[in-house]
């Protein structure tokens, strides 16, 4: 890790320069929320609150992505692989989303590796920004390990007054910041003071997690039949909002779009969600998770149990988007864990 100190106005100049030659994407105002969008000026960036409606996963595995094109001619099928890759710099990514991208890097590289995600990921430069106060009332990042980015960035900025402290974890990050300033010994004292204060604020403002973080998988496993699933499930729309806005929901559906001439078509990968009715429905009509309560349990288990066990960390990074998006307020992994913990069966 290399350290830098960069004056705020120098950072602005740097972003301004980057915009000239790169696609720079950052959170910009979007009604009363924010959204990741290409910048035309550094002034558009909304530092800190509030959270974007959807996470930056859209730039790594888009909502709908054409994977291949096919064409039939004389009993032959011509297949062309498709992948739109663009060099992109993501600026102002919160630690919860950095952690989520770090987790996605692991799952997408595990097996059945496709060429689309890695190529898009390689073309992406990640510049994170430290959160000094919770970005929304729904944030639970401190509780679920999402507030510390754990080096999952190229460059990471922390506001330390009239300057940013910048940590570079990769040569890409170093190259980027060295366009503005030279490496410098970090003002470790100042940085740790800022973070200490930050942690106190988060601890005061964020909802408490009652069980111990490390015990979450065990707690989930022991409560397959807890009434919380049924009670919350009753109020579930099966609308998949929680899936769509989740930075670590990565399930997809594959659709063929045949042209009406029946000689050519496109195969696309589209975001899917385990909370929707047909996610676990198979060709015979059998639905493995017909009940909304089962689907809610499945989603929560993915975050706090199955993937936690497999990769050693919670796959809810605490961004709070699902808690905001859910109209009936049933989906918060933290609240579910708390309810289970405090209502023993």
């Amino acid at each position: 890790m290399k350290n830098y100190i960069v004056k705020k106005e120098r950072l602005n100049d740097l972003i301004e320069n980057l915009i000239k030659t790169n696609e720079v994407i950052a959170p910009v105002a979007h009604e009363n929320f924010t959204a990741f969008a290409p910048l035309s000026s550094p002034d558009q960036i909304v530092w800190g609150a509030p959270q974007t409606v959807i996470p930056p996963k859209q730039f790594l595995y888009p909502q709908s992505e054409d994977l291949l094109a096919y064409e039939f001619s004389n009993d032959e099928v011509k297949i062309t692989g498709l992948n739109t890759v663009k060099e992109r710099i993501l600026f102002g990514v919160h630690p919860c989303d950095l952690n989520a991208i770090g987790q996605m890097d692991r799952v997408w590289a595990e097996k059945n590796i496709d060429s689309n995600y890695p190529a898009k990921r390689k073309a992406m430069t990640l510049v994170g920004v430290d959160c000094l106060t919770p970005c929304s009332p729904e944030a639970i990042c401190l509780r679920l390990g999402g507030l510390d980015p754990k080096g999952r960035f190229d460059l990471f900025l922390t506001d330390i007054g009239n300057s940013f402290s910048a940590e570079a974890a990769t040569p890409k990050g170093e190259a980027l910041i060295e366009g503005a300033v030279a490496a410098k010994a970090a003002d470790k004292k100042k940085l740790s003071a800022v973070r200490k204060k930050r942690n106190l604020i988060f601890d005061k403002k964020e909802k408490k997690l009652l069980p111990k973080y490390q015990d979450l998988p065990k707690l989930m496993k022991a409560n397959v039949d807890h009434p919380v699933w049924e009670e919350h499930g009753k109020l579930c729309y099966g609308c998949g909002s929680c899936n769509m806005v989740c930075p670590t929901c990565y399930c997809f559906d594959v659709q063929d779009y045949m042209h009406v001439s029946l000689v050519k078509g496109v195969r696309s990968r589209v975001w899917d969600g385990c909370m929707t009715e047909e996610f676990a429905k198979v060709a015979s009509g059998e639905n493995f998770r017909e009940d909304r309560s089962h689907r809610l349990r499945h989603r929560t288990y993915r975050k706090l149990n199955y993937l936690f066990d497999k990769w050693g960390e919670s796959f809810c990074t605490g961004c709070g988007r699902c808690i905001k998006a859910c109209l009936t307020k049933i989906v918060s992994p933290l609240e579910i864990a708390n309810e289970i913990y405090s209502r023993k069966i």
Partner: peptide, 11 residues
């Protein structure tokens, strides 16, 4: 599935 799925996809 409900319209919310595609509404969220749009951001």
């Amino acid at each position: 599935f409900p319209v919310c799925v595609q509404c969220k996809m749009k951001g």
